[in-house]
């Protein structure tokens, strides 16, 4: 992060917040921004709004309606199926061509630098999960950067679900490697003084849940933050008028470019950390 950018962000935030306290029109802008990043049952993408909503019944107190973020996730899934299965269709050929080359670069990176490095010899077994996680998050992040689109990974419920799956995979990996008892015995490092056992037990059990929680919040906050910052810069124009144009447009563009990087980096971090946790779970302390 460069200092001027963060300063500007802070000023922008303060400006927006200050303006928000002054009157209704400014509050509307804050409302607008929040509305833009929030999930909704209406499929509004920028100026376009799909004329349908899919309302489903509530089961066990859970509203199963298909929201905008779920919808965009399905779009992402369709894209992934199209590209990845399309690339895999000609996998019998020894020399890869076209899309398969591009995808193989990513697959090889995840296989060699993430799965095999973090997990080791058993890493290949977790590859389908790790690859799906990476591509899913990556495409969700990227598709959210298309103006008018929406970022599913900027929704805490989405990242929570991904983190819960990651948690389950990590626990399953430990149980598979050491058995149920062995896995939970690994929570305590060996050679511990007896009086430390209760303390460490609390710390380790907390750590077990904090890790996926951090995964969830990290991805969610990063994706949301980028969009909020871009929107804040754009909103400056509505608050301060044309004076803000020379500042807010380049800065918004800068953050946008940064977001392209962040979209990839966050997908990588989520995958890498999950792989690391799996590795720790398998190899013990």
């Amino acid at each position: 992060m460069t200092e001027p950018a963060t300063d500007a962000v802070q000023q922008g935030a303060e400006g927006a917040a200050a303006a928000a306290e002054h009157g209704d029109s400014s509050a509307n802008i804050g409302d607008h921004i929040i509305h833009h990043v929030m999930d909704s049952p209406i499929y509004d993408f920028g100026p376009w709004e799909l004329p349908v909503t899919i309302q489903l019944p509530t089961v066990f107190g859970i509203d199963l309606s298909i929201t905008k973020h779920v919808f965009i996730m399905w779009v992402v899934s369709a894209l992934l199926l199209f590209f990845l299965i399309g690339a895999a269709r000609k996998s019998g050929q020894l020399v890869p061509r076209g899309m398969r080359n591009a995808i193989e670069v990513v697959i090889l990176f995840i296989r060699d630098e993430v799965a095999r490095r973090a997990i080791g010899a058993k890493g290949d077994g977790y590859l389908p999960y790790l690859l799906t996680t990476f591509f899913f998050i990556w495409f969700c992040n990227l598709i959210g950067l298309i103006p008018g689109s929406t970022t599913a990974t900027g929704n805490v419920s989405v990242t929570a679900a991904l983190a819960i799956i990651s948690f389950l995979v990590v626990q399953a990996a430990g149980i598979k490697a050491h058995g149920v008892i062995g896995h939970f015995k690994h929570l305590l490092p060996g050679g511990l003084p007896l009086w430390l056992v209760p303390v460490m037990l609390v710390v380790e059990v907390l750590g077990m849940f904090v890790k996926p929680f951090a995964l969830c919040i990290r991805l969610f906050a990063n994706m949301l933050a980028g969009h909020l910052v871009i929107l804040a810069f754009i909103s400056l124009i509505f608050i301060l008028g044309a004076v803000a144009l020379p500042l807010s447009i380049p800065l918004a563009l800068f953050i946008y470019c940064l977001e392209l990087l962040v979209a990839t980096v966050q997908a990588y971090i989520f995958t890498m950390l999950t792989a690391t946790f799996v590795g720790m779970s398998i190899h013990g302390h």
Binding site: D63, L64, T67, V70, N155, V158, A161, I164
Partner: peptide
């Protein structure tokens, strides 16, 4: 605030 419906659908 997490929304259970979205969470389930994501999973």
């Amino acid at each position: 605030k997490p929304v259970m419906g979205t969470l389930v659908w994501t999973a």
